[in-house]
Design a protein around this nucleic acid. Structure first.
Lengths: 169, 169
DNA sequence: ACAATATCCGTAAGCACTTACATTTCTGGA
DNA sequence: TCCAGAAATGTAAGTGCTTACGGATATTGT
């Protein structure tokens, strides 16, 4: 027997879209990360998607400090520090104090790390190509994202909303 | 004195865009949620952005079950359950067992909850308007997001990437 | 009528970040 | 020279989700 017909909630996310955009973005990002994770599991490699940024940068640019990595990835230094811990435990990177500045620690791929990068390269290529395909199918969604980021950088959502509550003199 | 010039990492996020898209989406969503949170704090209301979906739906559609809310918001029932706990503790909703189905619990706005919804309505309107402005400035970024969601629904990133590793016969 | 199964919801634990704060090291001016 | 402050990094705790799993209630087949 049909339930006392529930209200039409289907269109809610779309309708509330503006305010709920944050949640939608998070869901999307989680879905993407999870898919990448499954791909690693399927080919039997012990790797987590959140390691990607650090490992890829180290393989592209050589040894880098925590701060440099954080700046390039646009995350907090703490996030990098945590990834560093995991990567060190996995034996993929080494972690020596910088000779010229005792505060810094240079992260560097180990041989094992280098080997893993090479093993994962085709996967990363496949993911990148799939993302390009997806982007084309979605008619330049990435470019739209960049425009959104730039618009937010010009003026934050907070400032924009605040003005509408108490308009500027 | 300038450091031994660090490699040009500035463009990294853009260049690795495809693979790093998940991380970018998350950052965006966090920024937006944080801004909304600051707005609540500024006007001295004790409210968290993650409560928005549930509270708004209850105010629009009346009492709903955990499952209905989860489906409408497209999150897990656990997420709704956690919000329910917080909202109950804050005295904003009540939470009675459904008479016709002992498994279900109907969430319902209390008077206090109703009052808060009315107090927050202008804020939500301001946020929604700011988001529309942002969207226009970013030339329909939201529509692009929707296209991306639909493209992913048609075929997951996982499937697309997998095919590129071992092409279909 | 009643067991097998499905559904609804809860708790526990994990994840990938964050902010807040502490520690160590460097740097620049009195 | 030495000390106040800045910078790089670390640890702890919090956030808002998730998956994994368990318990209670409803439904379905025989």
């Amino acid at each position: 027997m049909a339930d006392a017909d529930p209200p039409d909630l289907g269109a809610y996310t779309t309708r509330a879209g503006a305010a709920a955009i944050g949640a939608r973005l998070r869901r999307l990002s989680e879905r993407i990360d999870r898919d990448a994770g499954r791909l690693y599991a399927e080919i039997g490699v012990d790797f987590e998607q959140r390691w990607f940024g650090v490992l890829n940068l180290l393989s592209l640019f050589g040894p880098l400090s925590v701060g440099e990595l954080a700046a390039a990835l646009e995350v907090s230094h703490v996030a990098v520090s945590q990834v560093r811990q995991a990567l060190t435990a996995a034996g993929l990177i080494s972690w020596e104090a910088d000779a010229r500045d005792g505060r810094r620690r240079a992260l560097r791929l180990t041989d094992q790390g280098q080997a893993l990068v090479e093993r994962l390269a085709p996967l990363w290529r496949a993911l990148a190509e799939a993302a390009v395909e997806l982007d084309q199918e979605a008619e330049a969604a990435l470019a739209a994202l960049e425009r959104l980021e730039r618009a937010l950088a010009r003026r934050s959502l907070l400032d924009r909303a605040r003005d509408r509550l108490a308009p500027r003199p």
